[in-house]
Simulated assay, not measured.
Amino acid sequence: MKIVSISGSPSLRSRSGWLLQLAQTRLEGTGDSSRLIAVRELPAAPLLHADAHNASIREALNEVRDADLLLVATPIYKAAYSGLLKLFLDLLPTDGLRGKTVLPLATGGSLAHLLALDYALKPVLSALGARDILDGVFATDAQLLPHESGGYVPDDALVERLDRALQPLSPRPLAMNAG
């Protein structure tokens, strides 16, 4: 299984990026290969101009095309996924996610943004052909507290929800701690 993770955060140090990394860690040993697409690292002008012929953009789109599992992470801003993620998703063909399993991951300041996964991100993933969309995982800032190392510490309930969402993908039971 080829796993591709897409980080839609414009920030280098972000809770959604860290949640994505946690999900990747929890899936270690599940896939044959794993690749991260940090959309913020793609060239801005070709991304803004929807230039799918740009070598870096084309490479990222090919990674998505070849993926079996996509982990899509985004911060939620004003009840919607990031504009950066939108730019990238707009480059995918109409059925670019057909036949893929997709796990949406999101972070936001409060539970007021929880439904953005169901009402903003999931419809776009579905419009791109995804039919196997796993239960999304939303984390509030309070569930990912900053750690002195520069990362974040997830609360137990978040780790449990993430493991439950990942369970259909794992051939072995997932450990129930952030380890």
Rank of each mutant, 00 (worst) to 15 (best):
D118P: 09
E28M: 09
Q167V: 04
L144R: 10
R131Q: 15
I133A: 11
D32K: 14
L125A: 08
I37M: 07
L97S: 10
P104T: 10
T140R: 09
I3F: 09
V102C: 11
G179S: 11
P168L: 07
L36K: 06
L128C: 07
R26K: 15
L85A: 05
S9G: 13
A130T: 13
R35G: 01
A52M: 02
T94F: 09
V124L: 13
H53V: 02
P154C: 12
L19T: 04
A142T: 11
S5Q: 01
L92R: 00
S33M: 03
A67C: 01
G96N: 05
P171G: 12
L48S: 11
R172Y: 06
A80D: 09
R172M: 04
I3W: 02
A45C: 00
G29V: 09
L103I: 09
E148W: 00
A23V: 07
I133C: 12
A120D: 14
A79I: 05
K78V: 08
S126Y: 09
S5C: 00
A139H: 13
G151R: 14
R164Q: 14
T107V: 06
S33C: 00
S5P: 00
L145T: 15
L20M: 07
T140Y: 02
A38D: 15
A73Q: 10
V39F: 04
K86G: 06
P146N: 06
L85F: 09
R164W: 01
L128N: 06
K78F: 05
T140K: 02
L69C: 05
K2M: 03
P46N: 03
P104A: 10
F138L: 03
P173R: 03
S82M: 10
L114K: 14
S82L: 11
L85Y: 07
G8Q: 05
I6R: 01
T94Q: 15
D163E: 12
R58G: 03
T107A: 00
L121I: 08
G29Q: 10
G8C: 08
G96F: 06
I57C: 02
L48F: 15
T74E: 07
L85G: 09
A55P: 03
R65Q: 14
R13F: 10
L71D: 03
H113Q: 11
P154S: 14
P154L: 11
